[in-house]
Design a protein around this nucleic acid. Sequence first.
DNA 1: ATGAAAGCGCTAACAA
DNA 2: TTGTTAGCGCTTTCAT
Lengths: 336, 336
Amino acid sequence: MKTGQKSTIHDIARKAGVSPSAVSAALNGSWEKRRLSRTTVERILEVARSENYSVNLQARGLRQARSGLAGMVLPDHENRYFAELSQCFAAEAHARGLCPAIVHAGRDAAEQLRSVESLIAYAVDLVMIAGASDPPALAQACRDAHVAHVFVDHPCAEAPSVVSDNLSGAAELTRRLLSDMAPPEAGDPAGWLYFLGGAAHLPASSERIRGFRAEAGAAGALFDAEAQIRACGYESHRAEAELAALCDRLGRLPAGLFVNSIGCFEGVVRFLGGLSEDAIAACTFGCFDYDPFGTLLRFPLRMVRQRADLIVAEAYRQLDAGASGPRLVRIAPDLL
Amino acid sequence: MKTGQKSTIHDIARKAGVSPSAVSAALNGSWEKRRLSRTTVERILEVARSENYSVNLQARGLRQARSGLAGMVLPDHENRYFAELSQCFAAEAHARGLCPAIVHAGRDAAEQLRSVESLIAYAVDLVMIAGASDPPALAQACRDAHVAHVFVDHPCAEAPSVVSDNLSGAAELTRRLLSDMAPPEAGDPAGWLYFLGGAAHLPASSERIRGFRAEAGAAGALFDAEAQIRACGYESHRAEAELAALCDRLGRLPAGLFVNSIGCFEGVVRFLGGLSEDAIAACTFGCFDYDPFGTLLRFPLRMVRQRADLIVAEAYRQLDAGASGPRLVRIAPDLL
DNA sequence: ATGAAAGCGCTAACAA
DNA sequence: TTGTTAGCGCTTTCAT
């Protein structure tokens, strides 16, 4: 067929000698319930195929007050972890017969809100929100529109949320780094373990800092929290500068470094580029994030890998359960 | 307001004491054309806001035979380059007032076709396809549905396509590596430059191989193409094994290595992990792909970075131009 | 076992 | 300057 217009169920109905409603039922699988004869259905499908008919999902969605779309909003894809989240989100949406609509909304709260509203306007069947800057506003919009929603990465205090267990993940990494180092002493700041990077006011970082504090404290390795915890932001250049300043003070690399996020770690590695093998070998490194090249550096590196797969799976589970009140689930990350 | 139901333009119309079409015009910006008075419009908008009304984009789309969705299908997001492509795609869609719907369809041709058909069923306004396994089939589907489409990364012989200039990018990298190495001689295979990784039957790899051959040939550095060009696939373990075998034959690392793709490069770095500094220093490395950690390794690495931004921009330009016949545009990548 | 008809929420002629 | 009306393509009672 090569008519200029797309064919509709009416065209198919006419050509197959049946009614539009029969075509509808044949095509959307509800024909058993409607008790159409198998032969009729086959005739209809045959005609549809030969006309290479394609349902108009907007019309169906309008009628059914749903769309078959699964919406996700996330800040960006440069971040490997977000990329994984979106990948898992899409795979699961697919498995449920939904079409994933993924929107990159950046870090700006207003922009994120617009994105959510836009998804709502398309009558998405669910929305998953990663890295929300203003969770309550987004939750509000979803609630008003009666759209199932769940937060990942950044939790929302008033809606189901699934995040990495940053607290225990950080504690575990801290413990491991301490056990790999010589026991630190109060009098020698160069022998201490330092926490570098992240933003203390964001939930993920603040939990990691708590984990670090708790574990280091318990091990008697927290001597001067102010000095040891340097949440200088997520930008690699800031981390690089911060580490440079630290080395300047200490006269060498510290004995241990807990780097918060892969972006900061880039800055760290850049700084290390100027140092000797021996200087580097004297420091024990850990990073709360994962990159395949991390295992391929010239010094050993412990990494914490967030389980995007488990997080997304649990998030869908929350949606399935119809959860809508506040509920925070933490997923343990892997220590590599 | 907290009625259970979502409000429609009829509700707004009633509350504002106007007709539904006036509400429609006020809300979608066509009120100037319809010459509604500014005061009426403001009253309508006020009511809409207080009811926190949200348009039903499915209804609008159905009526207008479009959706305001911009569809993209791509294999996956693990690949940094694809992630960048999708990021750029979404940003530009946004700028045009379209909502990006990104579908991860894997490498399977049938799955990709289903994804495209699904987007078409949602009446997307355009489709961008990255890494198509069977381009003609996808182009056919789009053409049948009268949907504007463009291919990136993998070109399609019968539709507008935008890809990296793999040929000249590879030639440039080859030239650079040769100029960084000692001049190779026919009699000493260990002194040659080798090409490692990729799949010769795929368009990108085959172009890169052509570029390598041409440049190496012109420089008198192609002695045994069969031995020097090892397109062993994109998998990191294959590349690792292939390099191991090569070193085994040569008794050392070759003088130069052109690694096709970042995935293969991971395999290479893994293999290098077992070698001494000196052994590694004797080889000149290049990679046709980009990763921020590439500059942070313990040996120098030339990288070719594909310009996802320019590729996507050009792809949109093709869509704007209404191009629909075959047309291949190549975008020069950067040599870092 | 099948058809007729109403209507999802919106827009765009056409009237007034 | 504004309202009325007829659909967009589909699903879904309700008839038959």
